[in-house]
Design a protein around this nucleic acid. Sequence first.
DNA 1: AAAAATCTACGTCTTTATACTTAATAAATA
DNA 2: TATTTATTAAGTATAAAGACGTAGATTTTT
Lengths: 224, 224
Amino acid sequence: MNSNSRIKETINLLIIDDHKMVREGLKIMMASLKNSVHFNVQEAESGKEALTKINRFNFDVAIVDYQMPGMSGVETIQRILRLKPHLKILALSNYDELSYIESMMDAGANGFVLKNIEPGEMLKALRTILSNKIYYCNDVSIKIIEAAENKNTQKVQLEKILSTRETEVLRMIAMEMTNDEIAQKLFLSKRTIDTHRQNLINKLNVKNTAGLVKAAYKFNLIEQ
Amino acid sequence: MNSNSRIKETINLLIIDDHKMVREGLKIMMASLKNSVHFNVQEAESGKEALTKINRFNFDVAIVDYQMPGMSGVETIQRILRLKPHLKILALSNYDELSYIESMMDAGANGFVLKNIEPGEMLKALRTILSNKIYYCNDVSIKIIEAAENKNTQKVQLEKILSTRETEVLRMIAMEMTNDEIAQKLFLSKRTIDTHRQNLINKLNVKNTAGLVKAAYKFNLIEQ
DNA sequence: AAAAATCTACGTCTTTATACTTAATAAATA
DNA sequence: TATTTATTAAGTATAAAGACGTAGATTTTT
């Protein structure tokens, strides 16, 4: 049914947004694409109404707004997917807030676009998620990449916590070296490395080697 | 000088591409944006010519093609930045190959766009990188996100290597627990955990606890 | 110049981890 | 059914790590 409708380029779509203006805008957008695809559009102004319609009709995609009174976008997605696990979901939002993106995608959305989206991109987004891929509009994907990169930029703080030598020793511990091996490599006494290791455990507030290695990851002393 | 020209919305641009057609296309694109920005455009058909022009004139941005005979796009970027470390660089390519993206960005590019870019997005890209941010066109950023997600999908292999119990113990080791603590939590003998730990070291081909924790990361048993 | 931090190192003791072997029982697989 | 794998457990050692404290020499900061 789903695949048939896609071959005929018919998309059964449910728009879920509490603002009538947004729903109307989206319907006009879909109508403007009628040369490429035929849309069967229905709308719901709340998560509750959406669930009723989803029980009654067969949709290919649901466009779900993030901000809704009552049942939130996140909860709406979760409950939709409990009813129809294979229904594709495109999250819609005014803002490219990372927390919005993460919560909607974690809830099970297949894509996330902003409301300033153009018709051509909307079509691309819908086709992408219908072919089992993820779609983000550009501002959103740049936000995600930035966030991923920032995660790896907290190593600056490392230098405030650990001394150069301690950092060096920590890196070698994470390379599976024993204190003896580290001492030999650095031409130092094994007891010196003992001390460094102890200080590392205290400074980083961990319990043992496992904690040290996790800290080494956090501070990006280990690649990958 | 750079900032002045930006306030006046004048962008001094160098286009580096071996194909005359591409250079002409870009110049037409810049001309079409003359209502928004005034461009001073120069062009170079090789990395060598680019370096000469960069030595002679002051540019704000260089658009650098990936595929060029002789000096490659990557090498061109590296040598440009050795001369002018603060010059912004927009990488240009026909394909959104991850290896292309990575090599150009590693070389020092501030953004990466495909040749099918529209004038409006080109302006956005240039303004973004001129304000010290990174810009990727959408296909490119989706590629990057996909690659990052695939990195975290190799955990399937874990189940082929380790048993359920071993996986459980490994996770607890990575949580900084000792064998004694693990044993108590699982209502098992400490000697059983000793054995599991030894088997983990052998199966995962690591040397000690540090290696086990790294393996736990590789298999995504640890969040972050 | 004085104070603080870093790097070095040792003593002593306890706890944990690592190495290698054996082995019973249950469960899964061939 | 026979064989392999998983899970459990112990014996016996040695190696390594972890927890205290102390302390001189050097470097950095105030």
